[in-house]
């Protein structure tokens, strides 16, 4: 990991090599832009805002990029920055990446997530709906919604299981695991949900069906296989561990060998 040193100057001049692509079918290319007077206290997305204002003033098309909450919880901001998902620091999303991580005069490559399952929509925006379909295939639980729903706190869960489930549930679905994996594998994403619900009593009803359906959908979306390189857990902004993939592997094997229903 690159040491994030405080930049000597308070404002930076940078060269940006940004991926521009008009639409999904168009051929993309890198466009070079220079930005000046970027505050080291600003976030990477704010730096892109400055660039876009410059472009708009110059009568040119602004760069399309995903952003929403800008506080690291929504998972929509993506970007492959200088060869790393969400840039050079660990455990953060792009909105939490600050310009103090760069030096005056740096050239920064900004690319969209690259994966066959994540087609580019425009510029730096990719279609991550494949992840939604994996969740829809089984990432849910059955609850009584007739008005007399039981208080979740009344169901005992041991501390270790609750902690494991919570760690897995912290996935924000950003797709950094897919983007950084040499196989574009969505195992960490899928495993996070499988492991989350397998650890809780509420997840037991669909347990075997869930893992089989989600794995089948994950494969159908064209994501790759797991080579256990561990890149995903390093780049995951929420620090979701590789052991959850082992958990999914165990859940799946158990489900396939013992499930009574045909899937």
């Amino acid at each position: 990991m690159r040491k994030t040193t405080m930049a000597a100057r308070k404002s930076l001049s940078l060269t940006l090599k940004i991926w521009r692509q008009k639409h999904a079918k168009a051929r993309g290319r890198f466009e070079t832009h220079r930005v000046k007077g970027i505050s080291t206290a600003s976030s990477f997305l704010e730096m892109l805002d400055v660039l876009n204002e410059n472009l708009i003033e110059a009568g040119r098309e602004p760069v399309a990029f995903d952003h929403d909450c800008r506080e690291g919880i929504c998972g929509i901001c993506s970007l492959y920055i200088n060869g790393r998902a969400h840039g050079p620091s660990r455990g953060i999303t792009t909105c939490q990446l600050h310009m103090r991580s760069f030096r005056d005069g740096d050239t920064i490559y900004v690319e969209p997530w690259r994966s066959r399952a994540f087609p580019v929509i425009k510029d730096l925006i990719v279609d991550r709906s494949a992840l939604d379909r994996v969740l829809q295939a089984g990432g849910f639980i059955s609850v009584n919604t007739s008005g007399n729903t039981q208080d979740a706190d009344s169901i005992p869960v041991n501390k270790q299981d609750a902690d494991q489930a919570f760690d897995a549930a912290s996935c924000i679905g950003c797709g950094a695991c897919v983007a950084t994996c040499k196989n574009s594998s969505a195992m960490l994403f899928t495993a996070a949900k499988v492991s989350h619900l397998a650890h809780l009593p509420q997840g037991q009803i669909e347990r075997k069906r869930r893992v089989q359906h989600m794995v089948r959908q994950m494969d159908a979306e064209g994501f790759g296989n797991c080579s256990v390189t561990g890149a995903c857990e390093v780049e995951c902004p929420k620090g979701i561990a590789l052991k959850h993939i082992a958990r999914m592997n165990r859940e799946y094997g158990h489900a396939v060998l013992t499930s009574r229903e045909q899937t």
Binding site: M1, N82, G83, R84, R114, K182, N183, S184, S185, G224
Partner: peptide, 14 residues
């Protein structure tokens, strides 16, 4: 699965 277009800059060793 990786797709046709690869990263222009990639640091997998990190």
């Amino acid at each position: 699965a990786r797709g046709k277009v690869r990263y222009a800059k990639n640091k997998p060793a990190a």
